[in-house]
Design a protein around this nucleic acid. Sequence first.
DNA 1: ACACGTCTTCCATCGCATGGAAAGCTTTCG
DNA 2: CGAAAGCTTTCCATGCGATGGAAGACGTGT
Lengths: 261, 261
Amino acid sequence: MPRPPIRTAPGRSATSRALSVLDAFDERHHTLTLAQIARRTSLPVATAHRLVGELCRARLLRRRPDGSYEVGARVWQLGLLAPPTALREAALPHLQDLVITTGHTVHVAVLEGRSALVVERLAGSRTQPTRHSPGGYLPLHCTGVGKVLLAHAPRDLREEVLRAPARYTPWTVTDPAVLRRQLDAVVMSGHALSTQEHHEGVWSVAMPVTGPSGVVAALGVLAPLTAPRLADVLSPLSAAAAAISASTVDVGYGVDAADDA
Amino acid sequence: MPRPPIRTAPGRSATSRALSVLDAFDERHHTLTLAQIARRTSLPVATAHRLVGELCRARLLRRRPDGSYEVGARVWQLGLLAPPTALREAALPHLQDLVITTGHTVHVAVLEGRSALVVERLAGSRTQPTRHSPGGYLPLHCTGVGKVLLAHAPRDLREEVLRAPARYTPWTVTDPAVLRRQLDAVVMSGHALSTQEHHEGVWSVAMPVTGPSGVVAALGVLAPLTAPRLADVLSPLSAAAAAISASTVDVGYGVDAADDA
DNA sequence: ACACGTCTTCCATCGCATGGAAAGCTTTCG
DNA sequence: CGAAAGCTTTCCATGCGATGGAAGACGTGT
């Protein structure tokens, strides 16, 4: 019997569909069943089934004994080649120093789209095993690291972000004019401040980490409002930022080696 | 003018081609140009160009200012969802303890195909900033961690690996019968030994890390031949393996939460 | 036993991936 | 300085293979 013509593909390319399967996984969904993947990607089950099979063959996904799927170790391996890893390696020892000297939580972030991507974060008290926000995003306009990155970002991105700054707390600054002035001050002074603008009861200072070609990341310290003076943090923060900048010089511009077949 | 019929696709699926582009990147090639990618994947330049464009749109690749490509931060983020990350987080504090008490280099590895995948590695002397073999592979038949993993692996994998054990040093054991006996001993004794079987001048001991459903990883200590007695290492190694096993219990079987659109 | 949800296989249709060709561009060399 | 070599990008006619509805197998709950 002739089958009625299939409603066929919307417009997305074959590859983009396969990749959207990967996007179905996130912090809250480390493992998914086929049906869940189909729903979350809005793909027909049959199509999802085929794509998932391909991704498993490429080891980007792994089928678990119970039949569900998880992100494969291959992705982790590939991720080690991405820029955040090199920065993370370079920064880690200095982050530890900074945690020890300040006693507060510290983190490093890079500019990623219209957000700050947290590359590493170390908690202040060693009692807590570092709930890992690494991999998470922070807003650019109301966090210390975000302001540093935004202040040194291209003009157009800066203006785009200032167009509609989201409010997180009663203290969040949402006036573009005020923010513009703050960002100019960040460039001048070399550090950025945020006081309860993202989370109540928390303030942060951040400074830029520079590479061969300008600012590549931001280093920030988080402290409770009750914590003493900014002055106590600025000096070690500055030292750590300089140290990371120094060890980052030879990172990122790596191999240019011979060609290959 | 009518174009001669295109030689068309060999047989690989569209998706597999796109993914093969990712495989073009490795430890020695953090950044590649379009032409290099085309060569390394054996794809026509035009095809590679289109695929690379798609991967960039999905943020799995990033175009660098100089025009070349690198693995994108998105891959790093996805990699954080993969099993090795959870294991790594759980193991790290205990690895540090073990490094301090033994003074030697330690590492954790999981079974990946026919190799041991190194999940984390910490150097003994703090002078060296840990050349990161994380992400690298070790052979199963001639390393401490490899033997532990192989000894607890399914029968068929075990036999497959024993079929043709590669020689790395004059001390590498390549006799299947001897290896079989060693592996049985590993299961009985709870630890595996390798003396110069992989690298000359280095011996290693390893023990299994267990999860809810058997052995999930191996914890190993590397030491120079000149280092003193095995007995000095066994006890702290055992303690660390137990500690990691304990904190790994709730890892891997995570969210089974509500469904989703 | 029936209803429901999941996973898997099958296959007719036509959308879109494909790759040769040519143009624009930069770098290297004589 | 002009030519040559290499890299990147765009174009588009062709037909391959991605697509998704349907049906069957399986497991589970009522």
